[in-house]
C-alpha cells in the first residue's frame, strides 16, 4: 500500500511523532555493578536463598530446549531442588542458552538478558555454546557464547542429557553459595567489551545500548 519507509530511533524524542515518550520505554543508562551485602551472615543467607530458588527464563534458543520439558515433568522433576520455569525475564534468574545461537536469536537473548535483574546466571548448554559444535562453520550462528554474555557454567555434550543439566545446576548452586557467580557484575564491569563484540556480529543493530 504505502511503501514509505518509516525510521524510528527509539532513543530520540519528539522527532518521530510517536505519541508517547520513548524515554519511558528505553533507557540510555549503562548497567552498574552492585557489590553484595557487606554483612557476612546476611550475604551467606542471601546466597543460600539464591541457590535454592533458581527461576529459569523460559526461552529456548536452540534444539537443546527440548531437554527442558523432561526436567520439569515427572521423570526428572527439578522442582524438588527449588528450580522452576519462569516466563518473564524480570523475575527469572537463570538463563539457559540451549544449544546453537543464531545471530537473529542473539539479539533477543541480549535483550532478555539485560532485562533480568542482578544477580543473574547463564548456563551454556551443549557444545554449540562452547566452540560452535557442529555449527562451527555456519554463517549464521555464533561460536563462543562468552564473547557476548558472561557464562557461569558450561554443560558440554550434544545433546547433554537432563542428568547432565542437573549436574550443571548443582555446579551453579555451588558457585552461588561460594559467592563466585557474579556474572551480572562482570557484564557491567566489562560492558564496553561485550557491547563491541555484540555489535561486531549483529549487523543490523537497532537496539538501545542497554535495555535495563
Amino acid at each position: 500500500m504505502d511503501d514509505k519507509e518509516i525510521k524510528i530511533d527509539p532513543l530520540k524524542q519528539d522527532e518521530n511523532n510517536l505519541g508517547f515518550n520513548p524515554a519511558d520505554y528505553f533507557c540510555g543508562e549503562r548497567p552498574k555493578a552492585v557489590t553484595p551485602v557487606a554483612n557476612k551472615i546476611v550475604r551467606k543467607f542471601y546466597n543460600w536463598a539464591q541457590a535454592n530458588s533458581l527461576w529459569i527464563l523460559a526461552f529456548g534458543t536452540g534444539c537443546g530446549s527440548i531437554e527442558l520439558p523432561p526436567l520439569y515433568t515427572a521423570r526428572y522433576d527439578v522442582s524438588r531442588f527449588g528450580i522452576f520455569p519462569r516466563p518473564t525475564p524480570r523475575q527469572a534468574g537463570v538463563f539457559i542458552i540451549s544449544g546453537y545461537l543464531s545471530v537473529k536469536t542473539l539479539k533477543r537473548v541480549i535483550r532478555s538478558y539485560e532485562q533480568m535483574q542482578n544477580p543473574k546466571f547463564v548456563l551454556g548448554l551443549g557444545s554449540c555454546t562452547v566452540n560452535g559444535g557442529m555449527y562451527f562453520d555456519s554463517y549464521n550462528t555464533i561460536n563462543r557464547l562468552d564473547y557476548y554474555l558472561p557464562v557461569d557454567v558450561y554443560i558440554a555434550g550434544c545433546m547433554p542429557r537432563p542428568e547432565a543439566l542437573i549436574a550443571g545446576f548443582n555446579e551453579l548452586k555451588r558457585l552461588i553459595k561460594e559467592g563466585k557467580a557474579e556474572g551480572a557484575n562482570k557484564y557491567a564491569d566489562n560492558f564496553d567489551w561485550y557491547k563491541a563484540n555484540q555489535k561486531k556480529i549483529i549487523k543490523d543493530w537497532d537496539l538501545p545500548e542497554y535495555n535495563w
Binding site: 530458588s53 524480570r90 542482578n118
Partner: peptide, 17 residues
C-alpha cells in the same frame, strides 16, 4: 518451605527497575 526461600530470594535481588 519453598515459598519462604522464594520470598528471601526475591528480597535478596540487588537491583529493581
Amino acid at each position: 518451605w519453598q515459598p519462604y526461600i522464594d520470598l528471601s530470594k526475591s528480597l535478596s535481588m540487588r537491583t529493581a527497575i
